[in-house]
């Protein structure tokens, strides 16, 4: 059996706040297969970013990992020394952050930052690095790349900074790319271009990726597998084709059913009632039960386990014994 590119095991994480410890991830588990793109979809606050930050130990100081492991090449990243982790970051596992403007250095030009990143990891001359940097910008759809290298991040729009970050991450040809909402701020045409680029890299270099998004259509475009996150738990994980054609969890079904379609006009959208749980809300039972039209009595009492079948995982009692 081939080794997974990344494995997350029973990850529990909370934030220490004035109101006490707020649980955010509640036993998240999944595997990322080598060379595959796994889309992690979920609503705002479901824990997508926090989970991604935990992989490279980039969490804010008030976050606490209560339990769990994240395995990369047989080692637990959560207990790795910071010097060892630095060698993993960037070159092996690269990350594109949700907030691109904040992750670029405002006092260096875009060119300086790209060249520095390239030269920190590759033995190449400044001139070659410069040429590669320009090529990278062109690749992510930034015109007049040569000229743009001289500019500072504030002269770039949010979407352009995002693309610079993407260029930087891809420059290192990492084993694993973690991309947190990399196209959310972008227009559809550029989004399509970036998605193609990530797919291309996956095919050429065998890169695996965790692609975080709240947009199911984007996930459908890019992913081999999809993980549906709700209130810090995996509700369903399945191959993309399967998940979109036969969603098993009532939450996944509800979400897909409630989306407006560009292909036809609907008179009414079958909406899910209610609201997602608030951060730190005490949940007994299934977190989706209060909004679920199929909920049984026991759904409010105990949280269902992840039932596994044919490479799909579903956290729902309706799948018990199926």
């Amino acid at each position: 059996m081939t080794q997974a590119a990344l494995t997350v095991q029973d990850l529990h994480l909370s934030f220490l706040t004035d109101e006490g410890a707020l649980p955010v991830l509640r036993g998240l588990s999944y595997t990322l297969s080598p060379g595959k793109i796994l889309a992690v979809v979920g609503e705002s606050g479901s824990g997508k970013t926090v989970h991604a930050l935990s992989i490279l130990n980039l969490l804010p100081p008030n976050a606490r990992v209560d339990q769990g492991k994240i395995l990369y090449q047989g080692k637990n990243l959560l207990s790795m020394k910071s010097s060892a982790l630095r060698r993993v970051r960037g070159r092996k596992i690269a990350m594109i952050f949700q907030d691109p403007q904040a992750s670029l250095n405002p006092v260096l030009t875009v060119g300086e930052q790209l060249i520095e990143t390239l030269r920190a990891h590759k033995r190449i001359s400044k001139k070659t690095a410069r040429k590669q940097a320009a090529e990278l910008l062109t690749k992510v759809g930034i015109e007049e790349a040569e000229k743009r290298l001289e500019e500072y991040p504030f002269q770039f729009s949010g979407g352009m900074c995002q693309r610079v970050m993407i260029a930087m991450a891809l420059a290192l040809s990492p084993d694993v790319l973690i991309a947190d909402e990399p196209t959310t701020a972008l227009d559809v045409t550029i989004q399509a271009q970036i998605l193609r680029l990530i797919k291309e890299l996956q095919q050429q270099s065998g890169m695996a990726a965790i692609f975080i998004t709240h947009n199911l259509a984007v996930a459908a475009q890019v992913a081999d597998e999809v993980l549906v996150l709700y209130a810090g738990q995996c509700m369903e994980q399945a191959p993309a084709s399967r998940l979109f054609s036969h969603p098993l969890h009532p939450y996944t079904q509800g979400l897909l059913g409630s989306l407006a379609s560009v292909e036809r006009k609907e008179e009414r959208l079958p909406a899910i009632t209610g609201n997602p749980p608030r951060p730190g809300e005490i949940l007994t039972g299934c977190p989706f039960a209060p909004r679920c039209s199929h909920a049984l009595k026991k759904c409010f009492e105990t949280c269902p386990p992840l039932y596994e079948k044919d490479g799909c995982k579903v956290r729902c009692f309706l799948q018990e014994g199926k």
Partner: peptide
């Protein structure tokens, strides 16, 4: 046309 063709869509299955 360019915009519409770039809009990602969710494949509609047996919903």
């Amino acid at each position: 046309q360019k915009l519409l063709s770039a809009v990602p869509t969710v494949p509609r299955g047996a919903l």
